[in-house]
């Protein structure tokens, strides 16, 4: 955990009051980061700590909030780091990580599609898996499909 401590120290120095807390008891170390500063932290992690790929970016509806979860991986150090941030359910907005890792482009489109999270500054934020005129964001816990889609019954 030496490196993680170093990372935390560095972030505390560069971006004070950003890091909310760290969790180390789970599978991987987790950094909980303030929503507004998540992308600078991610960029720092990529540039200074060699996390050159974003394995997975996903969201999770926790009922009262939406968690945004970034799984970072560094091939040379064989190290996984999880960055989490919390978004409001009513108006989930966060800056895009597209400029940090290219793979974020499609991940974020998927999250927008299925959770309705808006990524500010994203180059092409349109639905990716569902049809463009679909109503609602299915992976939210309170999602109820519309009765029909272009005359086709949805729920059976």
């Amino acid at each position: 955990m030496n490196r993680i401590e170093k990372i935390v120290k560095m972030i505390r120095k560069e971006e004070p009051e950003v890091l909310l807390r760290t969790e180390e008891e789970g599978q991987f170390p987790v950094l909980r980061v303030e929503r507004d500063r998540v992308v600078p932290v991610l960029r720092l992690l990529r540039d200074d700590f060699g996390f050159e790929s974003l394995m997975c970016e996903t969201a999770s509806d926790r009922g009262d909030r939406i968690d945004l979860i970034y799984h970072l991986f560094s091939t040379p150090h064989r190290e996984t780091l999880v960055v989490k941030t919390v978004l409001s359910r009513e108006k989930p907005q966060v800056e895009t990580a597209e400029d940090v890792w290219k793979s974020a482009n499609w991940y974020e489109r998927e999250i927008f599609d299925l959770f309705g999270v808006e990524f500010i500054g994203h180059s092409d934020l349109v639905r990716i898996l569902l049809p463009q005129d679909w109503v609602g964001h299915p992976l939210r816990k309170d999602y109820r499909p519309a009765p029909e889609y272009h005359g086709m019954k949805i729920e059976y």
Binding site: S53, M55, T75, W101, K102, S103
Partner: peptide
Amino acid sequence: TEADALSYN
């Protein structure tokens, strides 16, 4: 390229 491959994961 290698860089692209990593960036696009």
